[in-house]
């Protein structure tokens, strides 16, 4: 087997350090090495987005990234977005607007949506649909996902306005 690499990364704010084969996929690092099982494996070819995480401020499909490529990176998964006492606005919105059914795409979907709303805090419906096109859902038909994201955007914006 190939030689192991020394890897260091920050995942959801926690420092992680370990030895790994460079070919190890980041999704396996997260799920099997670090027990962060929110991101899921749906296709292993970058099509479905169930494995979406945020790396250094960008949405990335972790099923097609080697852990070696993530060396030194800052990684955020669904587990880093909110916690049971204080859910992320998107987590609340998905619950409120029935934006999920089987739940398998949901962590990737919400993680991507959180980035989308940072990139574009006031998206139109069309922009949401385009911005989420890398994440596949087999259950909802997207209508309520789009609704959830638009509602979350509104919520975030009114909170921002109130703060100003």
């Amino acid at each position: 087997m190939s030689k192991k690499m020394h890897i260091q990364m920050t995942v959801n704010g926690e420092e992680q350090e370990f030895l790994a084969e460079p070919r190890e996929l980041l999704i396996h690092t997260l799920r099997e090495r670090l027990n962060i099982t929110g991101p899921h494996i749906g296709c292993e070819t970058s099509h479905c987005g169930a494995c979406t995480v945020t790396i250094n401020g960008k949405s990335v499909k972790s099923c097609t990234m080697f852990v070696a490529q993530a060396n030194g990176a800052e990684v955020t998964t669904i587990e880093g977005l909110g916690n049971p006492d204080s859910l992320h606005v998107l987590q609340e919105a998905f619950k409120e607007h029935h934006g999920l059914q089987c739940g398998f795409c949901t962590p990737g979907m919400i993680t991507r949506a959180s980035k989308l709303l940072e990139e574009n805090p006031t998206p139109s419906e069309e922009e949401v649909r385009f911005g989420m096109a890398g994440n596949i859902c087999r259950c909802t038909g997207y209508q309520n996902i789009v609704k959830s994201i638009l509602a979350a955007a509104e919520e975030l914006n009114s909170a921002k306005e109130a703060a100003q």
């Binding site: 929110g38 669904i78 909110g82 916690n83 049971p84 998905f94 999920l100 739940g103 949901t106 919400i110």
Partner: peptide, 9 residues
């Protein structure tokens, strides 16, 4: 939804 939205399915 509580568990699914938090990645705890």
């Amino acid at each position: 939804d509580a568990r699914f939205t938090q990645g705890k399915g």
